[in-house]
Nucleic acid binder design. Structure first.
Lengths: 215, 215
DNA sequence: TCGTTTTCTGACCGTATGGTCAAGTCACAG
DNA sequence: CTGTGACTTGACCATACGGTCAGAAAACGA
């Protein structure tokens, strides 16, 4: 049993690995470039350089610039939807909404590029993900509105408009990603520290939870 | 005194008029195209078509695409700063912050394109207006934080972090412009009605003012 | 080792875009 | 009416970009 042999568990494990690794490199680079330059301002050459691959290689894995962009947007949308689960298990608004704020703030912190790509896509009229807005997002929103309305009916929180509450949650949490550069500039040009992120989360939760009478 | 004479108050009033009118046409078209396609995706040809002028004429009034873009961004920044005045005259937080919310919501409604251009610019790291962030915006922010801190010290509102309160105000109000398309999609594809805008404003004010203990 | 399939890549192409220019047209002062 | 200078515009140019392709290299199964 020679130790030199590469352990190909199943057939062509190495090739699968290569493919996965390169797609990862390309998607990471693309997310960043799309975020920093927008779809129109991004160039395949720049993405290729950042990924450390020749441009032609990008077109081997992703046929067109738009296909690559689609994948980037879909990825962030899925991350975004995952955070939604926080909402579901909760019994009371303080836990459910507080947890949702924490989860979305964490996404803003961990995936600032993806967040910006999503924002830019929506701002430009969602040419690529309009169907997601009309189906998945709409269903999710309607469901969450029902949950909030339930809390209101049970007297667990003030009778606010659930839809606008949701918009406020989205706006406030995403702001820390999308306008991160502005926040950084107003923070003497330095990124928020661990402590400052905690302060931000606490502030947002404090104002909103008290604002809906669930503090 | 022949009535036919064009009343040129000062010299070459007609030419001044032509220039002003054309710059207006170009800036309006540019604001919209930059908002819908981003700086990189916008083309001078598209802006020219929308303005109803030949492309070469755009370059007569604005030497480069970037110069045109600069003007668009500066314009929205000035509108944005004007709304800030609402903050100043107020004695108590309910009036000051409530008025600021109204003013910024109104800007989101009246200038959705400009708002998006501004957002995209900041998201991309503010390559054009970085100096504004570091000077004007920073000064304004510091001043307003002092005002809010004053209210807190006087016991007129809860001791929230003034900076994060400001961020929340910006985020929430701009959301109605920047994510207007998403909001419209979730509103059965229709723009918000007069009544719905009023509801939005009222909801935002209710939650925030109660959230800071100024309701 | 050998043939097959997948991955890699430099060179190339057609097009679209920002910008230029020279020859016009028009406003207007004298 | 005429000269001057501001405005207009179709035609043009250089460049950059998305995308293609043919052939080399590497991985793989037998």
């Amino acid at each position: 049993m020679p130790a030199s042999a590469q352990i190909p568990r199943n057939k062509s494990a190495r090739r699968t690995e290569i493919r996965r690794e390169n797609e990862r490199l390309i998607l990471d680079a693309a997310e960043r470039v799309f975020a920093e330059a927008g779809f129109g301002g991004a160039t395949m050459q720049l993405i290729a350089d950042l990924a450390g691959l020749p441009k032609a290689n990008l077109h081997y894995y992703f046929p067109t610039k738009e296909a690559l962009y689609r994948r980037v947007v879909r990825n962030i949308f899925e991350i975004w939807l995952d955070a939604a689960s926080t909402f579901d298990g909760a019994e009371d608004p303080a836990t459910g909404i507080g947890g949702y704020i924490d989860a979305k703030m964490e996404i803003s912190r961990r995936h600032p590029h993806g967040s910006k790509v999503w924002a830019a896509e929506v701002m430009q009229g969602a040419p690529v993900i309009q169907d997601y807005l009309e189906t998945t997002l709409k269903d999710w929103t309607d469901g969450r509105i029902r949950v909030i309305q339930g809390w209101i009916d049970q007297g667990r929180m003030a009778p606010v408009n659930p839809r606008h509450l949701l918009y406020m949650l989205w706006a406030t949490t995403q702001h820390y990603a999308d306008f991160g550069h502005q926040i950084e500039t107003l923070n003497h040009g330095a990124p928020l520290t661990e402590r400052q992120w905690a302060e931000a989360k606490a502030s947002v939760k404090a104002i909103i939870l008290r604002g809906i009478g669930a503090a």
